[in-house]
C-alpha cells in the first residue's frame, strides 16, 4: 500500500476509533451544558458586558486556552499511543506499511476530531449567546458573527499543532499525558509571560493563537486583558505571521513524531 493511501486509510480508521470513544461525546455534552448555562444567565452577562467582549472572553478562556490544547493533545496522544499501549499496534507494525505515513494519518485524524469539536462548541456557544434577540447588551453591542472566522481559523490551526505535539509525545514518551501536562501548564504558562520579543515564545502554540486573535479582533476591555495574560505584554508586531508560525510548529512536531515513530521498537518495552 503506498504511503498516501496508508495515511488515508489510517486517518479514517483512527477517526472512527476516536469518535467511538466516550471522550468526544462527553466534550460535546459539556459544550451543550455550558451553552445552556450561558443561555440561562445570558441577561446577566449582557448587563455587565459588550457582546464582542463576552464572546471573546468566554471563547478564549474556555475553548482556546483550555478545550483546544487539552483535547487536541489528548486525541493526538490517544491516536498514537492508544494502539501501542493496548498492543494492537503489532497488527499494524507487522504489515507492509510506512510508519511515518501511519503517523501522519493518525495525526490528521486527531486534528480533525479536535477541530470539529472546537468548531461545534464555538458554534453552539455563539447560538446560546445570541438566540434571545430581545436581550440588551452593554452599549448595544451584540456578539458579532464576524469574530467567528478568526476563532475557526485559530481553532483549526491550533488543533493541527497541538495534535502534532500529542502525536510526538505519544510516540516518544511512556507517559505522554504527564509530559503534555507539563508542556501546557508549565512550559506554555511560563513562556507566555516572557517579554513579547522573546524568541522562546515561538516554542509555544498559545502565543501564535493569541497573536492571531489579537490581529483579527483588535480586542478591548476584559477580552484584551485575558488575551494578553497576567503580564499584559502586547504581542510583537514583527514576529512571524501567526498562521505560518502555527503551521511551522505543526509540521516540525509532526515530522519529529514521524521520525520517532519510525525508529522506535515499541515491543521492546514489553518483557517476554
Amino acid at each position: 500500500m503506498n504511503p498516501a493511501l496508508t495515511a488515508l486509510v489510517l486517518a479514517r480508521q483512527t477517526t472512527v476509533r476516536l469518535l467511538r470513544a466516550r471522550m468526544p461525546w462527553l466534550l460535546l455534552l459539556g459544550a451543550i451544558a455550558g451553552a445552556v448555562l450561558v443561555a440561562l444567565i445570558g441577561r446577566h452577562i449582557a448587563r455587565h458586558n459588550r457582546g464582542d467582549v463576552a464572546l471573546g472572553v468566554i471563547t478564549w478562556l474556555t475553548y482556546m486556552q483550555f478545550v483546544l490544547p487539552f483535547c487536541a493533545l489528548w486525541f493526538g496522544v490517544q491516536a498514537v499511543q492508544g494502539d501501542i499501549e493496548d498492543r494492537t499496534s503489532v497488527y499494524l507494525f507487522s504489515r507492509p506499511l510506512s510508519r511515518p505515513a501511519m503517523l501522519l494519518g493518525k495525526w490528521f485524524a486527531a486534528a480533525l476530531v479536535s477541530a470539529l469539536l472546537i468548531l461545534l462548541g464555538i458554534g453552539i456557544l455563539y447560538v446560546a449567546l445570541t438566540w434571545d434577540r430581545s436581550r440588551t447588551w452593554q452599549l448595544g453591542v451584540r456578539p458579532p458573527a464576524a469574530m467567528l472566522p478568526a476563532f475557526a481559523h485559530a481553532g483549526v490551526l491550533g488543533a493541527l499543532a497541538y495534535a502534532a505535539l500529542g502525536a510526538l509525545f505519544g510516540a516518544w514518551f511512556k507517559r505522554p499525558l504527564i509530559m503534555g501536562l507539563v508542556f501546557l501548564v508549565g512550559w506554555e504558562g511560563m513562556m507566555a509571560n516572557l517579554p513579547a520579543h522573546a524568541s522562546a515564545r515561538a516554542l509555544t502554540v498559545v502565543d501564535a493563537v493569541r497573536r492571531l486573535l489579537w490581529q483579527a479582533h483588535a480586542p478591548r476591555d476584559d477580552y484584551a486583558e485575558v488575551l494578553l495574560g497576567p503580564m499584559m505584554v502586547h504581542p510583537d508586531p514583527n514576529a512571524l505571521d501567526p498562521s505560518l508560525a502555527l503551521l511551522r510548529f505543526a509540521v516540525l512536531a509532526g515530522a519529529l513524531a514521524a521520525w520517532v515513530y519510525a525508529r522506535r521498537e515499541y515491543d521492546a518495552r514489553v518483557a517476554e
Binding site: 471522550m23 446577566h44 455587565h48 472572553v57 486556552q65 483550555f66 501536562l181 485575558v226
Partner: peptide
C-alpha cells in the same frame, strides 16, 4: 487511568477556567 487523568484535569483546570469566565462576565 488515562480517562481518569483527563477527567481530573477537567475538574481542576476546567472549573478554574469556567470560574474565571463567570467571575468576569457576572462581575
Amino acid at each position: 487511568p488515562n480517562m481518569a487523568s483527563i477527567a481530573w484535569l477537567f475538574v481542576v483546570v476546567g472549573t478554574g477556567f469556567v470560574g474565571q469566565v463567570l467571575r468576569r462576565m457576572l462581575a
